[in-house]
Structures are given as C-alpha cells and as structure tokens.
C-alpha cells in the first residue's frame, strides 16, 4: 500500500506542472512504470481517483507505459528478460543482483486543457 504515498507524490507533480502551464484541467497523466518495480498500477489508479477529487486532475485518465525488465549476467555475458523479481540467469541459474531496466517510476508527461 505504499502506492498511497506514491500517488500523493504523483498528484503533487501533476498539479505543479499544470499550474506552471496555467492549465485549468488535466485530462491525461502518462506514467512510466518498470515491469519489476514494486508499484502496482491498479493501486495507483485507485488512490488517484480518490486523491484527485477537487483538484485540477480530477477525472484525468492515467496512462501507464510499462518498461520491460532487463538484466545482465556477468558470468555468461548475456542480457536476458527476468521472469520474476528474484532474478536468476536462464543459462547458469546464478542469481543476478542488479536489474539494468525495469524498476522505473516517473511521470512522463501530462495532457492539459
């Protein structure tokens, strides 16, 4: 449920950017989220609906873009797509500590009127 805090942060960014542009209403919020981030888009959506009531962003549509996860095995010198958050190399099966992609969470853009 840390998505509550994350959605508060998201809403602050959206409102600040909309105000800066002199916008009256936000119609879309584009959010990029890593496939293996610990944040759940459906949860963010749920909190966004509640938290945005009475703000410029009320009723805005959240559009998520997922970044496919990617990891690199130093032992085998291969890049691969991990199939779970506990990442192991598909060739040598050793655990891989660092993801090269897939844990992102940022506001990409907003559509305002």
């Amino acid at each position: 449920m840390h998505e509550f805090a994350v959605t508060e942060g998201l809403l602050e960014i959206v409102q600040a950017e909309a105000r800066k542009a002199g916008a009256r209403k936000v119609s879309e919020v584009h959010v990029t989220i890593g496939e293996l981030s610990t944040f759940v888009d459906r949860s963010i959506e749920f909190y966004f609906t509640e938290l945005s009531r009475g703000t410029l962003a009320e009723g805005a549509e959240l559009v998520f873009t997922t970044v496919e996860a990617s990891a690199w095995c130093d032992l085998c010198d291969i890049e691969f797509h991990p199939d779970s958050a506990f990442v192991t190399c598909p060739e040598c099966h050793s655990p891989v500590p660092v993801l090269s992609r897939g844990q992102e969470l940022y506001v990409d853009s907003i559509e305002v009127g």
Partner: peptide, 12 residues
C-alpha cells in the same frame, strides 16, 4: 496541450 514532465515520483 502536452507537457513533458519526466520527473521521478519519489523525487520529493
């Protein structure tokens, strides 16, 4: 109008 934001949500 589209506004590019590109901000990490945990930045604050």
């Amino acid at each position: 109008m589209r506004i590019e934001v590109r901000q990490n949500i945990l930045a604050r």
